[in-house]
Design a protein around this nucleic acid. Structure first.
Length: 631
RNA sequence: CGCGAAGUAGAGCAGCGGUAGCUCGUUGGGCUCAUAACCCAAAGGUCGGGAGUUCGAUCCUCCCCUUCGCAACCA
């Protein structure tokens, strides 16, 4: 709605955009689907129908508040009113933030809609509830006893839910966007997003293969959900309970939820354009797909929120990818061409020394560590181990100093042997590095394959840790640099772009609107007479103070020419009392008075909300006399 | 309000009862095949704050502070 287009257009736009971005970053999916696909509608409907036919839902008809102005049923959070317990006039339908009581909308005195400020009416609506509490004993056993290995943040959250007690939860909503409830008499009802969304995983598998049941219904399947911390409950509690209720499906083996990644100290937000857009990144850093992948993995918020900064991006690229990994591969190839005629030299086992043996042993050690880390979802650590192996390669080469040995060649041809050994080991290490880095940096792994003139098959994980990946005597290509250095200038540009982009959101949003079809209005059309019912006037603020114990409210005295009025307005987080004095504002003067925090407000000040959620006062371009009509 | 997770050197992390460690970055020195690595040395931490338990606490207990998340028509 905000973009002025239909939900369908929104999903089409972003689906295409994300698919392309994933593709360009070398992130491949067996299937990249969406819950608007027909197969998903069928699958989720059928799932619902099965639970329904098995009598697992509670059908409840409730009276829910309905906002006639916007034609919508109101979620609890969208209703405010006076708290029955502490008389706070701004309690929400689900809880009062002043006294902390949990509420239901029915308990509110003088409820109103936060969408339109209308007085909501009760309307009957029927929904289907899933009795989560019935699965509580089973969930407790399954998670708290059988999955103690889950991550702290995940396990703790689940424990909290389970110990607080689960409740029936509506699995349908009143809406016209989503999957229709597959029952007669269910006009205008759709499945609750978090009912159908995880079923989307099953639907997508169906789209992939007829043998989808081999994945979902066989005990040897290991189901893992990679998610962010904000939806732990859906994947650990609700979806498993649904699967259990339905029967015949495997349950998640693990749900390694990550924390959040910030960007330059602020929360990432695509709507506020505080983001790094993949398609723009690839334009600005062509050929650097793997660098972004590297930094995101090395800095992934596995145990706590982390920050992506361009400076860190540069540091990690220059010191870890270029200087450690890239440099090792490069110097190995350069030396091999200089000292071994461009071919994989022989390994003279008779003269292997401790250094050789130690490094060779590292092939397997590191492989085991990387594998173990991956199996335990410690991706950061796994990647570190790979880079660390390259570091060990550098150390090894430094100890062996084949370039020094080479100086003795004219008088002693025997030294070719240790030179051969060093480069043989280093080259085999390069091959191992290619295999080990492949899951993280696939583009880099390909480049290495090319240099080694070997086939893709070599990258199979089974090859990790082996000493003999390259054959003796095989001639290899000239080295190509795997990574390039990233200069300060490029980084500064990105930081600037980010900061400028933040202000351009409005422009971007307008551009989107211009392309889109005529916007569907959110509210029904009205006639002039409806508009004429409003009395809007310009007023000058003569005094202003903050309302005590209310963080959002300012109490204003305004001059309407013929009279003065007191108005309470929820703009305290956007304007200070001092700066309001003397400003002109537009006031709805014939709005019924309402008390807020014990002060009667005799009107309402008009504001507009920008993309940052900041309120902007509406006011005349040039000062006019107080009391002027607005039309 | 409550619940969960997190808070350890400039950055990213480990440690979890006994002199605070790793990688990167910084500074000085050595070396040079390499987009320079590597070696040596150094600087940099009242382990979020306070109380307690203990012979001893970053680690255990309690309180507090900060950040993020917690069934919203949001995968």
């Amino acid at each position: 709605m905000k973009e002025g287009i239909t939900p369908q257009q929104v999903v089409d736009k972003y689906h295409a955009m994300m698919k392309e971005s994933f593709d360009q970053l070398g992130i491949a999916f067996d299937v990249y689907s969406r819950t608007s696909a027909p197969v998903h509608h069928e699958t989720s409907s059928a799932f619902f129908k099965k639970l329904y036919d098995d009598g697992l839902f509670e059908e409840k008809e409730t009276e829910q508040y309905y906002d006639e102005k916007t034609n919508t049923f109101l979620a609890d959070r969208y209703i405010t009113g006076t708290c029955p317990i502490c008389a706070n006039p701004n309690a929400y339908g689900d809880q009062c933030e002043k006294c902390g009581s949990s509420l239901s909308p029915d308990q509110l005195i003088n409820p109103r809609s936060t969408l339109s400020d209308a007085v909501p009416l009760k309307r009957k609506t029927k929904h289907w509830y899933f009795p989560l509490q019935q699965y509580e004993p089973w969930l407790k056993k399954w998670i708290l006893e059988e999955h103690t290995e889950w991550k702290n943040n995940v396990f703790g959250q689940c424990k909290s839910w389970l110990e607080n007690g689960l409740q029936s939860r509506a699995m349908t909503r009143d809406s016209n966007w989503g999957v229709q409830v597959p029952l007669p008499d269910a006009e205008g009802k759709v499945l609750y997003v978090w009912f159908d969304a995880p079923i989307g995983y099953i639907s997508a598998t169906k789209e992939l293969t007829d043998k989808w049941a081999d994945y979902w219904c066989k005990e040897d399947t290991k189901l893992v959900h990679f998610i962010g911390k904000d939806n732990i409950v859906f994947h650990c509690i609700i979806f498993p309970a649904m699967l259990k209720a339905h029967g015949g499906f495997v349950l998640p083996d693990n749900v390694p939820a990550n924390e959040f990644l910030n960007l330059e100290g602020d929360k990432i937000s695509t709507s506020r354009n505080w983001a790094v857009w993949v398609h723009e990144y690839l334009q600005d850093f062509p050929g650097c797909e793997d660098v972004l992948r590297y930094v995101l993995c090395a800095n992934s918020p596995e145990t706590k929120d982390n920050d992506f900064t361009w400076k860190d991006f540069q540091d990690r690229n220059n010191s870890e990818l270029v200087a450690i990994f890239g440099n090792f591969v490069n110097r190995t190839f350069v030396l091999m061409h200089k000292l071994c005629g461009g071919k994989v030299p022989k390994l003279h086992e008779d003269i292997l020394d401790e250094n050789d043996k130690a490094l060779i042993a590292e092939f397997e050690n590191t492989t085991a560590e990387v594998q173990s880390a991956l199996e335990h979802y410690r991706f950061r650590d796994a990647l570190f181990q790979v880079i660390d192996l390259a570091r060990k390669g550098n150390q090894y080469m430094q100890k062996k100093e084949p370039w020094i040995l080479a100086k003795q060649l004219p008088e002693n041809t025997e030294v070719q042997k240790p030179i051969d050994n060093c480069l043989h080991v280093c080259l085999q290490l390069c091959a191992n590095l290619a295999v080990l880095i492949n899951p993280f940096l696939p583009v880099t792994a390909r480049k290495m394959l090319h240099m080694m003139k070997v086939v893709d098959k070599m990258l199979d994980w089974e090859n990790a840790g082996k000493l003999k990946l390259l054959s003796v005597g095989y001639s290899l290509r000239e080295p190509q640099l795997l990574f390039r250095k990233i200069e300060d200038e490029e980084i500064n540009k990105q930081v600037e772009k980010l900061k400028n982009g933040r202000q351009q959101t409005t422009v971007a949003a307008e551009a989107t609107n211009a392309e889109a079809k005529p916007a569907a209005t959110a509210k029904p059309e009205i006639v002039y007479d409806d508009f004429a019912k409003l009395e809007l006037k310009v007023a000058t603020v003569t005094a202003c103070e903050k309302v005590p114990k209310a963080d959002k409210l300012l109490k204003l005295e305004v001059d309407l020419g013929t009279e003065k009025r007191t108005i309470v307005s929820g703009i305290a987080q956007h304007y200070t009392a001092e700066e309001m004095v003397g400003k002109q504002v537009i006031v709805v003067t014939n709005l019924a008075p309402r008390k807020m925090k014990g002060i009667e407000s005799q009107g309402m000040i008009l504001t507009a909300e920008d993309n940052d959620g900041k309120l902007q006062l509406l006011r005349p371009e040039n000062p006019v006399s107080p009391g002027s009509n607005v039309s």
